[in-house]
Design a protein around this nucleic acid. Sequence first.
DNA 1: CAGCGTGTTGAGGA
DNA 2: TTCCTCAACACGCT
Length: 273
Amino acid sequence: MPELPEVRSVVKDLGPKVVNRKIVKIDVLHPKLIKEVNVEEFKNFLINETFLDVNNLAKHIIFSLTNDKYLLSHLRMSGKYFTHYKYRSTTKHDYLIFHLDDNSCIYYNDSRQFGTFHIKTKDTLYTTKPLDKVAKIPSETNVKELFNKIKNKNIPIKQLLLDQSFVSGIGNIYANETLFATQINPLIPSKNITFEQLEKIIKAAAKIMDQATELGGSSIDTYTSVDGVKGQFQDFLQVHGHFNDVCKRCKKAKINKIFINKRGTYYCPNCQK
DNA sequence: CAGCGTGTTGAGGA
DNA sequence: TTCCTCAACACGCT
């Protein structure tokens, strides 16, 4: 589900709900979501600490807490947050509940249960999994460095854009949109992409995801931000999900759909040769 | 009923 | 070691 624009929306919406609030109690209804430590360690680490800030590194949500503690949350396919001004009974797939010191509650809901939580301290935050291998997002990417990294890569450029260790924040939707915008065929081996093409791709990815962020992300399938708020960028998607529609650019060919690395890939066979 | 999906990781083969 | 492919995670929807 969420890619960079959607995660940014969640962070923005979640901030005011939690910053300066102390965690007084945590209900863990699905221990599997918590990585590296057991439920007791997780609770002990966080209870009585206060949220100082909510940020994101690419698709990872970073809650900063007092005493140099951090809580990492990755939404994967279907993670969502809901809030309520006081405790309410759980709904289907509510798996984690943070009780805050103003009696409000933050609910983490995840129908597919792929989401992850890690607790970290200042000294291990960026040097251990899962943040240690995360590359820069497109707007911060050094294209020369990236070009050097991919010059011997055989994997299709579309697949490379989804690899968070090369460039981060891009998911399937925005990979499709980026390659359509730059008129580059998603199957081209990464090593055959020219420097100029790569520069275009990175710029386009940054631009598209910034525009999507402005509109609160893309709500296709199930994505919503905090408390079920939908994004609006889905109405502006050019190729993703447009199989068999007439291409919005050339108005001649129909959008094709193939699978690259098992992920649905949409492109115009006429514009992206 | 079968297949698909907005994401990532780890195992295993070459 | 590196590069790459694939299964697995789990559930709702078509």
